[in-house]
Amino acid sequence: MIKEILGALSIVAIPLIVAGFVVYAAKKKVPVYESFVSGAKEGFAVAVKIIPYLVAMLVAIGIFRASGAMDILVGALSPIAHLIGMPPEVLPMAILRPLSGSGSLGLMADIMKRYGPDSFIGILVSTMYGSSETTFYVIAVYFGAVNVYRTRHAVAAGLIADAVGMLGALLICKILFG
């Protein structure tokens, strides 16, 4: 029941928001077409502004992944994973999730294909995917849009959030399905 409501909500949300906003603006005597266009004009500039930040971030992550350093990192971290009861199969997911959106998506599909989507590992790996965002992508894009390059503690806070998300996913899956 909740699932159906949520599903329907995500479909009707955008049309409703858009219609609501436009009607409300018209009621407030805002010249709707004019002000929509003047806002939309900035779209191109913002998208172009994030290109250098995104290139820098994605290339560095691409080099790291292509070099095989991931495998070494997985090997180094597997004793810790073992200690907290994380199945070794999902460890690459925990590492890749903050780095690469498309990479972790492919990895999730791959792991579920191998172990089955309804197995414990399958449920865990998709929960992990859903429990976090691609931190480095978000940082590059969001800070890039406002030309912020001294990001201070953003990376640390983002990675702490990721780590907690991964551990939370492990915990809840162990309780419910383990």
Partner: peptide
Amino acid sequence: TAVEIALGLIGVMAFWLGIMKLAEES
């Protein structure tokens, strides 16, 4: 890929910035 992602954002970016402008002015 980075450039494709950024350029792919232009359309939705423009749309939502337009809508946000309406929401702001109203």
